[in-house]
């Protein structure tokens, strides 16, 4: 389903990034990095409206030739970025939305783990398996 999933801290450094092993990892790092500018742009452009509606989903950030990049930002300004294969046209907006929600819930659980210090990189088996399941789903 997704080919790369990243969690970015408030200060724009990566907390977690994972991509399908078959592809060039660096390429996705680059894609995610580029998308952060679009995220910032979106937040500042419709920031007020987003806060009012409590809408966290940012929608499609930008499409490239092979991939589509979607974004989601929590109220604490933690960003989730998901890269999806463009050839997968069956993927609806709703599904992307629910995937982000799942990701958000999982992230919340990690934050509640007393052994996790906020701001550290995420090393969690539960999160790994959740992300894996999202990347495997419809491959």
């Amino acid at each position: 389903m997704a080919v790369c999933i990243a969690v970015i801290a408030k200060e724009n450094y990566p907390l977690y990034i994972r991509s399908v092993p078959t592809e060039n990892e660096l390429k996705f790092h680059y894609t995610v990095h580029t998308s952060l500018d679009v995220v910032d742009e979106k937040i500042s452009a419709m920031g007020k409206a987003l806060v009012d509606q409590r809408e966290l989903y940012l929608g499609l950030l930008y499409p490239t030739e092979d991939y589509k990049v979607y974004g989601y930002v929590t109220n604490s300004k933690v960003k989730f970025v998901m890269v999806v294969d463009s050839s997968n046209t069956a993927l609806r907006d709703n599904e992307i939305r629910s995937m982000f929600r799942k990701l958000h819930n999982s992230y919340t659980d990690i934050m509640c783990n007393p052994f996790y210090n906020p701001g550290d990189r995420i090393h969690s088996r539960a999160f790994d398996t959740m992300v894996n399941s999202m990347m495997m789903q419809v491959c």
Partner: peptide, 10 residues
Amino acid sequence: VDFVELPDNH
């Protein structure tokens, strides 16, 4: 133990 995941060093 809800939420808890033991890190490897513990």
